[in-house]
């Protein structure tokens, strides 16, 4: 239902322009594989594989967020775990206070925590937007390596903060005992939860598609490729980039909230700098600057994690080799291999 919705809405201004080229076909088949695969697994009673598909979808969503900053905005953020983790903690803390019947953050005049997904998602998106605005404001003054490092440093700051704040578990993390609720849906049902995540992924993809097709998208591309030219045409590149960075943080934060609900747990491992690297890896594996790249990247990554992890204890060794090979020899990632060079390159 959400699926058809997003596709008809893809580009209402230019309905004829949405043609299925090779990249389009690949994208569509990836989504189909996910949806059909999850449904078949559910019918076969294999909840584990449904959850594996949900994991792919959620990690893809985090990648879609980062891709907006990294692939389309040229901002190499090495700190997206901050938004992923913050989103997760919003879901966790909301559920914690709802379970305890105490006001959010223990501040008396705030409403009680919530176990409803919609307000939790909105809170996660809003807070991640604020955080990304703050970090973006301070970081976009720098560029190149400095930008990479300062985003990493901010994420580390939040990581250490979360570790040392005992109220919400610190290093122990925070379990979500009962998965958060959405109206009358049974979110504990693995397939229902999968399609919730899937719907949000489609919504995010369609949002990004429209955003990039708009004047804003053109300005963002120009800000990445030639900021000087953009400035001479009267548009300041920095605010454009900041907006993209904020939206990017929001999408990744939403993914974090879903991830916490999928696992029934939020912990500092969601804020770890390895997580930032992992989200980046997903974007690169799929193909930088391809809208559906993170979907391919996430599917490949989670599948490798599952398959290699079953074969050998040292699966990350092989992940490293694959990654190295992709960076050195297959720069376009999965999409580069399957669909040829990107329009964005």
């Amino acid at each position: 239902m959400t699926q058809s919705h997003s596709f008809t809405q893809t580009s209402p201004a230019r309905p004829a322009r949405f043609r299925l080229d090779r990249e389009g076909w690949i994208s569509l088949s990836l989504l189909l594989i996910l949806a059909v695969g999850a449904s078949v697994a559910y019918l076969a009673g294999e909840n584990f594989f449904v959850n594996l598909a949900s994991r792919m979808v959620i990690i893809a969503l985090a990648g879609v967020g980062l891709n907006l900053a990294l692939g389309f905005g040229g901002m190499v953020s090495f700190g997206h775990a901050a938004y992923f983790g913050l989103g997760g903690y919003v879901a966790g803390i909301g559920a914690f206070h709802a379970f305890d019947m105490t006001p959010a953050l223990g501040i008396p005049f705030l409403p009680n925590g919530s176990d409803q997904m919609i307000p939790l998602w909105l809170t996660a998106i809003a807070l991640c937007g604020l955080l990304a605005y703050g970090i973006g404001r301070l970081s976009l003054g720098t560029s190149g390596v400095y930008f990479i490092m300062i985003t990493l440093a901010f994420a580390q700051m939040i990581y250490y903060f979360a570790i040392s704040w005992p109220t919400y578990g610190g290093e122990d993390g925070l379990p979500i005992y009962i998965r958060n609720q959405l109206w009358g849906l049974n979110t504990n049902n693995s397939l229902v939860f999968f399609f919730l995540c899937f719907g949000l992924l489609l919504a995010a993809l369609s949002f990004c598609h429209r955003l990039l097709g708009s004047r804003f998208g053109a300005a963002l591309t120009m800000a990445r490729l030639n900021p000087v030219r953009l400035a001479t045409s009267g548009v300041e590149p920095r605010p454009i980039k900041l907006v993209a960075f904020v939206i990017s943080g929001m999408i990744t934060g939403l993914a974090g909230a879903l991830f916490a609900d999928l696992n029934g747990f939020v912990g500092t491992s969601m804020l770890d700098w390895h997580r930032s690297g992992e989200i980046m890896v997903i974007v690169i594996l799929g193909g930088v600057g391809r809208l559906y790249g993170p979907v391919a990247g996430a599917m490949l990554f989670v599948a490798m994690e599952f398959w290699l992890g079953g074969l050998t204890e040292y699966w990350q060794f092989f992940l490293g080799l694959v990654l190295l090979a992709v960076v050195l020899f297959a720069r376009g990632g999965v999409f580069g291999l399957l669909a040829g060079r990107s329009r964005h390159e």
């Binding site: 578990g169 122990d172 993390g173 379990p175 005992y177 696992n263 029934g264 747990f265 912990g267």
Partner: peptide
């Protein structure tokens, strides 16, 4: 303990 709290209740 942190792993226990993540796993055991559910």
């Amino acid at each position: 303990s942190n792993l226990a709290m993540a796993v055991i209740p559910s």
